[in-house]
């Protein structure tokens, strides 16, 4: 079974714009999903340059970058990514 990688940007911009709360993501995931997800902090994803700090905080879920993240949306997107990966593997 593949594990979904959730990378939370630990750059200062993301943190100041509310990214600190995303560290709590693990404790907010449904139990059925939690085992299929790896959550890691990562260095600045470089998305906040050129005045785009208003779109922070950023996270990368299964390779795809999402902006203006909050805890509720991060949970939703992570669950969706796990389900999508599950469907891909479940070819019988």
């Amino acid at each position: 079974m593949s594990v979904i990688l959730v990378e939370i940007c630990c750059g200062t911009t993301c943190h100041v714009m509310g990214g600190g709360d995303l560290e709590e993501l693990a404790s907010h995931l449904p139990a059925a999903v939690a085992g299929k997800v790896e959550i890691a902090g990562c260095r600045c994803l470089g998305q906040c340059r050129d005045g785009a700090f208003g779109r922070a905080p950023f996270v990368r879920i299964a390779g795809q970058i999402h902006d203006q993240m909050d805890l509720a949306r991060a949970v939703e997107l992570t669950v969706a990514a796990v389900q999508a990966a599950g469907r891909g593997n479940d070819v019988r």
Partner: peptide, 17 residues
Amino acid sequence: YEELGAVFVAAEIDVEE
């Protein structure tokens, strides 16, 4: 801390780096 954070972002200083 909020103001300090804003200044870090504006000055592009990443604490963790």
